[in-house]
Structures are given as structure tokens and as C-alpha cells.
Write a protein that binds this DNA or RNA. Structure first.
Lengths: 398, 398
DNA sequence: GGGTTTTGTTTAGGAGCGGCACAAAGTCAC
DNA sequence: GTGACTTTGTGCCGCTCCTAAACAAAACCC
């Protein structure tokens, strides 16, 4: 029999976590319970060491001032890890998206799964040992699709891993085999997910998608276009975790060839290479493509050729976004990576093409905004690691 | 303060409703509660007149035989209504998707909103008065997008209604103004939604999508291609109810022109006209296009030109489905209308193109099946009308 | 016919939350 | 500055839903 007790504890912690319950009074309203219950819930979260009730009250006009609720400073943390094309990052993250200073490591020379996961585990364990705060869980962001619920990687092209690599199991095993120090829940709860999905989760809870109900995130980075959807606070990952593979949406029927066999895919039409080509530039071999393309977007104001290229690629991106809006009908689209730069360089153009090209775009305007978290993937990984505790905070009892 | 009591009542009724709790013992397992609780819940649902515990037990091998749970015969009903291009249908539907004989009416000569909704209300009220069973709610399926949460129609092309017609309010007002007889909850709870969405809901609960977690329904009828998605038992209607407008997905970059300004949209490439044209047939003016196209698909086995046309259009449909699968990653696709006929005529071809064209189609096969409800829209409308009672069965107390 | 297995019911008890009353801590009006 | 008002926090009681455990019932097996 499951424990059905304290159904309000999780929602209450989630509210404090996302900053939506700044005071006990606000918590009472948000949970739609009596003040007595909200007080008891806050007290229990405080007893678990997760939430702190500020002893000095803050006045808000008339009436008795309320006490601020906040995440306990020095409370427990989770380990967030991210593997990307040219390195690995780890950070400790408290509740409230409170990201510690990330630590970056180069990748090991041998990029087979075993050495990679050993490196991740070592970097993570070292960070966990270095803090005096309790560590309750860990999660890893990977730059490739991760199947659900089995947690295997598909098409880890950068690393040459075979499809079906059991990344969830590898992460759990290597991390729990490492020396994690004394202040760790053993075995550590672990999880692995795709980086775009985690970035969307982070932007929804702590970034540009705070008050959105249906958040679509689209990003362009080193490995093509990625997408993710958050619906009512939960990731839409599809039935096997492979949803939102938006890279092969057709945006230009006369466009360039894509390895997938089609033409004019979003992937090849809005990536750094396409932008540089549209401006007639040959990529410098010594600089990352993404950085060159990003620079180009900032030159649009004074360089007509850059302006033309930006407008052209922004239009193709907008056509793709319009297609997605027709299917998903989000109320917010968050753009990240190079797409964020395109939005910054041609905001009106991009937004108006989306409105024109989507069926109801002129009637139901969707807000299109830039991502605003520097380390969205790490924050998102932390969200994933925190998730069990946000669902049932009593798991945090020592 | 909301009533938090009896949280199990709704889930229990939903299980009986969808046939997943055939006995009290099964209910115990499905709800993950003690036998005492399941017994109490079943007793309360019986007291509400919704569920009946069969007095004669059925043996299932060893042990004391369990009693069957079933929807109370002669229990309450809801009114389901559907407006389509050439008529209006109404039916009374009990729990369990128990559809009574539908009644069909022609449309009034004047197709403005007022006369149309008066006709719907009259037909519905007559049906409601004709039964001795209690009527608890009503819902209407419309062949055009319906916005949420305000319940207005967009682009009701068949009827020439202006965008923004408040269809939800019109339905509620006209129906409740009609003479509904004595056995009706007053005012009747009403709801209005898009027909494709309701068909998907019906197929998920009582049809070809029974055990699917992520169900994508795609249909082709008189008014183009419609789509709908059911995720974990709930409709994904997007932030404003306009999701799954899949008609303008590009499936052929050299295809025919579409009124939307693009080329090769799913709408124009897989509609009855396209199929007839692919077979080199000129549509007979005296027969509905849909019927002619449907007949054509059944001739594919002995007519090579029909075969070629079916394969061609099935391929274009499959390309569209593959694109949707990349974005939504459903575990089941249900095809309805002409698309159902295409699946019947070229099942292997269609399935293999979807598998080849979707990114992970060969790894995570999605099952593609034909719709199997004759009146899916009406059953779906009933689901919508039942929804409040499935959430809180105590609303059914007289 | 007596064990075994599975199901249904009864009873007692616990936990969570609402309701209420009262206390506390501020603002506002004068 | 004083009292009225407003808003917040807390203790206590009771209701309700659910679990647990024991018992009873109805089939099967040998």
C-alpha cells in the first residue's frame, strides 16, 4: 500500500522551490488550504531541513506582516552533470535552482562509454566530497536522445557510442562505486536525460518560461537543432523519450540536402554553417563554427550582408517554429543557442513570420523569448535529480 | 476550501467505465488499496446509481469467486451531439461508452449560429425527453477548432460562422432554454470541443487506443485532415485548444499548391480529391468525394491504377505521420476516415514508410491501427460530458 | 470432509485537513 | 497615542478517508 499521507508537502515545496510561495500567507492561497494547514506544512518542510521560515516578518501594507519562506541556506544539494561535445561539467545545486560554481573538465582521450563515465563519476564525486552539505541525488545531461524508461542512449554521434548504450545504468554504477564521502544518501538516486529536455525544464522553472503553461524550447548548438516541450510543469518526452526531434522538419522545399535524405530540414537550414554560408563567409578553421555564427548575428546592425543572412535564416527558423506551433500550440517559445542570437538580431522579423505562417498565429499570439539561464542544462539536470524530493519531500529525512 | 475527500471515487469509476475493473478484486489491485477500501468505494458508486455489483459471483479458479462490477443498466446518461458538414446527430450515452441509437437530422436552411444552435437544442431536448433515464450533462462535437478556455469557434468554414463565435455559450444557453423534461439536472453541464479531439478521446477509452499511453489520431474527412493527441488519458489541446493542426505539414516539396500559400501540405496531398486525381479519375459530381475515394481504396487489389494511386497517397500520408512521430513520439497512431481506408488498402507499405522516414522508426516501432468506433465523435462528446462525473462521481448525487 | 486460497466485511485506529476561536502584529483614522 | 481594523499564526476539536487486522464466506484441492 502506498503512503497517501501529506499530499500537500510536495506541492508546497514545489511552490517554494520556484519562488511562488514567498510567504506562508502566499502558500495558504496557492495551496488553497487553511492557514493552519499551510503553517503545519511549512513547519514540516522546515523540520526536514529544506525550507526556512524567516524569523523577522515583512510588512505588506495592512495587517500583521507575514514571515518569508525560503530555501534553507546550506540545505541539501544534488549533483548536476553535463556531457557536451568538448568537455564535461559538474555542479552542486540546491533547491530553488541555486547553482554553485560549475567545474569544467576536458574529456578523457578514450571516449568509449566506460572511461567517460568513470571521468564523470570522478569529477562528480570530488565535487560532492568538497562540500559539507548533504547530497541527495544526481543527474546527467547528455547531448543525445535517451530512451525511456530503460535509459539507453541513441545515436551518441560525438562519442561514437553504440545505440542502446545503457547510460542510466552506467551513470548510477560508476557514481555509486566512487568515494562520495560521508554526507551522501547511499545509494545516490540518479537519473539521465537529454540536455534539450533538461534545459526546457530549467527555463520553465527558473528562467524565461516561468509563467508559461506550454513551453516549447528550440535550440541550435554544436549538434544540430534540439527541441523540448514542457506541459503543465512536466516534460513531454513522448512514449519512449524521443519526442521533439524537430531537426528534420521541412522548412524550405528547395533547400539544401540533409543527411536524412530530405531537403531543407530545420537542422541544415538554421545551423551555424548555414548562417555563415548565407553571408557568403567561409568558416575560419581555427574557431568554433557556433562562435563565428554567433558573432555574425551581432554584426547585422552595421553589415548589410550579415543582415541579409540573419533575416534569411531567421525566416527559415520562423517557418519551422510556425509548423511546431500548429502542432503543439504552446503559449511560449524559448530560443536558445544560435537561435537565441537570431532572435536578438531580428526579433520583429522572426515574430511576424511565425505569426503569419502559423494557422492561428495572428489570433493567438505566442510569445517568443530568449533563454535566460547561463547553465540551463545543469540547472535542468538538478531539477531532474530533485524531482523525487519535490514529489515526496519526506524522502529527504535522514 | 476544496473537498479533498474520497479521492479514490473518481479513479474507481474511471476504471469501471473503461472496463479495467471487471471485479471488486481487480479494483483493489488497480487502485492499490485494501479490499476494505475498494469494497467501500464500490458500495458508494453503487449508492450513487452508477455502478452495479453483480449479485452472482464468477469463479476464476481457486479461491472465493469475486463479484462482477458493471455500469448500472438504466443508469444516468449524457447527451452527445455532433455537427457535421451535412447534418446533425444526437445520441444518449451511458457510462462505459454505451451509445444509444443515434438520431440524425438535416441542417436548417439558415446556417447562421442562432438557427443552428436552436436546431441542436431542439433535437437534443427531444431525445432527452424521450428517455426515462436521468440526464446529467451534454457535449457537442464541432468540425472546427474550438479555443480554450473561452469556447469560441475558429474558421467554421462550412457554416460561414465568424471567427470568435461563442459556441460554448450558445450551446449552453439554447439547450438549457429548451424543454428538457423532468429527469434532467438543471442547469445541464455542457461542453463543446473539436470533433477530431473527441474522436481521439473515444478511441483511447473505448476503441483502438485502449492500452496506449500516447495516442495520435489522424483523420481525413470532408474538411481536410484533422489530428488529435491523447497523453496519459488526457487530451493535449495545447495552450489555447488549437494544437494538432496537422493539415499543413509539408509532405511533398514539389507537391500541389495549398490555400495556405505553401505546397505539398498533408491536407491537399492526402484528401479524397488527391487520391482520385492520382488514379486519373475525374470525380463524379453526384456522389460525395469521400465516398468515391473510399471506394477507390477497395479497388486497389484488382485495379493497378487504383493500386498505384493508393500507394502514392499512402506514402505521402506516411511521410506526414513520420514527421509527427518525430515530434510527438506516440506509441500508437489511429487512422480514421479516408486514412483508415488507405491503411486497410496498403498496410505494410504505409507502416514501412513511417518506420523508414521517422528518425527512430526502426528502433521504436509505433503501432499504426485503424479506428474501430463507428460513432467516435459522439462517444467522445459523451466522454467530455461525463468528465466532471468521472472526476468527482458525487456530483451525480441527485 | 477438512485444509488452502481468495474474496468480502467488520472493527478499531491513525493521519490529514477543515473549522473555529483566540492571540499577535502591524496599519489607519482621529 | 489610542482604539478600531486588518491580516497572520497557532492550538484544539472533529470529521473523514484510509490502513490494518481479524473474522467470515465461498470456492477449490486432496
Amino acid at each position: 500500500m502506498p503512503d497517501r499521507g501529506r499530499t500537500l508537502l510536495g506541492p508546497a515545496l514545489a511552490l517554494v522551490h520556484t519562488g511562488r510561495a514567498p510567504t506562508r500567507s502566499a502558500l495558504t492561497a496557492a495551496l488553497d488550504v487553511t492557514r493552519a494547514t499551510a503553517g503545519a506544512v511549512a513547519a514540516e518542510l522546515a523540520a526536514l531541513g529544506l525550507v526556512t521560515v524567516d524569523p523577522n516578518p515583512v510588512g505588506t501594507g495592512r495587517g500583521r506582516p507575514s514571515h518569508r519562506l525560503g530555501i534553507t541556506p546550506d540545505g541539501p544539494v544534488v549533483l548536476a552533470a553535463q556531457l557536451h561535445a568538448d568537455g564535461l561539467s559538474v555542479a552542486l545545486v540546491g533547491l530553488g535552482g541555486d547553482l554553485g560554481e560549475p567545474v569544467h573538465h576536458p574529456l578523457p582521450a578514450d571516449r568509449a562509454p566506460e572511461p567517460m563515465f568513470r571521468a564523470i563519476a570522478e569529477a562528480g564525486a570530488a565535487l560532492v566530497r568538497s562540500t559539507h552539505r548533504r547530497c541527495l541525488g544526481a543527474a546527467l545531461a547528455l547531448p543525445n536522445p535517451v530512451t525511456e524508461p530503460d535509459g539507453t542512449a541513441l545515436a551518441a554521434l560525438h562519442f561514437g557510442w553504440p545505440s542502446g548504450t545503457p547510460v542510466a545504468a552506467l551513470f548510477a554504477e560508476h557514481l555509486n562505486a566512487a568515494d562520495l564521502g560521508p554526507r551522501v544518501r547511499h545509494p545516490l538516486r540518479t537519473a539521465v536525460a537529454n540536455d534539450a529536455n533538461l534545459a526546457a525544464l530549467a527555463e520553465h522553472r527558473h528562467g524565461a518560461g516561468r509563467d508559461a503553461r506550454h513551453l516549447l524550447l528550440v535550440t541550435s548548438g554544436h549538434r544540430g537543432v534540439g527541441g523540448a516541450l514542457v506541459v503543465d510543469g512536466r516534460l513531454h518526452t513522448g512514449s519512449t523519450g524521443l519526442a521533439l526531434e524537430v531537426g528534420h522538419l521541412t522548412v524550405d522545399r528547395c533547400g539544401r540536402d540533409c543527411p536524412c535524405g530530405n531537403r531543407g530540414c530545420l537542422n541544415v537550414e538554421t545551423d551555424p554553417q548555414a548562417l555563415l554560408a548565407a553571408a557568403g563567409r567561409t568558416p575560419a578553421p581555427d574557431l568554433p563554427l557556433l562562435a563565428q555564427a554567433s558573432t555574425l548575428t551581432r554584426e547585422a546592425d552595421h553589415d548589410p550582408r550579415a543582415r541579409k543572412a540573419v533575416d534569411e535564416v531567421a525566416k527559415l527558423l520562423a517557418i519551422g517554429l510556425a509548423g511546431l506551433a500548429n502542432i503543439l500550440n504552446p503559449d511560449r517559445i524559448v530560443l536558445s543557442g544560435l537561435h537565441r542570437d537570431l532572435l536578438a538580431a531580428a526579433p520583429d522579423h522572426l515574430r511576424s513570420v511565425v505569426a503569419d505562417r502559423s494557422l492561428w498565429g495572428r489570433i493567438c499570439q505566442v510569445s517568443i523569448v530568449p533563454a535566460d539561464l547561463e547553465y540551463a542544462e545543469l540547472v535542468g539536470a538538478a531539477e531532474l535529480a530533485w524531482q523525487p524530493y519535490l514529489t515526496d519531500p519526506q524522502l529527504a529525512a535522514r
